[in-house]
Amino acid sequence: MTVKQHIIIKGVKDGLLFLLDDQCDFEAILNELKHKIEKTHQQLLTGPLIHITVKLGNRTISEEQSKQLTEIIRSQGNLIIHAIESDVPTVPKAHAELKVMTAIIRAGQEIEYHGDLLLLGDVHPGGLIRCTGDIYVLGSLRGVAYAGIHGREEAIIAASLLRPSHMKIADYLCPPLDQFENSDGVMEYAYIDNDQVSIQKLTLLHRENRLPVIMRGV
């Protein structure tokens, strides 16, 4: 009986390489892995500690699936998972979804975007921006801005001139803006702090440790 093998096991100098087929069903891989480890390859896999590197090929797996894999391999006492690697490049989500837009959002106009939005232009009173992620406005924000509309509480609203008629982050409504009124013309951003919307100078945003960039230098 020749069944197509979904898992190829190779020996490398620091342990074993498990190459998983990236076309088949993930369930099939789990079954075959179980079969190999518990039945056919048992004699091979006994003995001293062996480091295992799992190569997923062109496949991404969820945390749940990764746990299932680990459990099966760990069931054999001497196998240690060294790494689970995928060929699919992982991109930080926030960056992948940033949309740059040039427009003036006038009274009665409305834009909605799934992700983060960078608007080069103004939002006039009566204009509306709705976003599932962050809102950045390079211009004056005098209309209405809703960030994190699907409940993302880490979302922020930043603008060169932050003077919205009102704004909301996730389900938190911003208190009347005159509380925050500053006249020195610095850029500001709004964020959720202790269950309420707060406003802070944009230059202090890095302290929140969002998407930190480590500067390299001498």
Partner: peptide, 12 residues
């Protein structure tokens, strides 16, 4: 001015 803004948007 607010109404003018709305109309300019529609004309655009």
């Amino acid at each position: 001015v607010r109404d003018a803004d709305r109309v300019i948007g529609l004309l655009e």
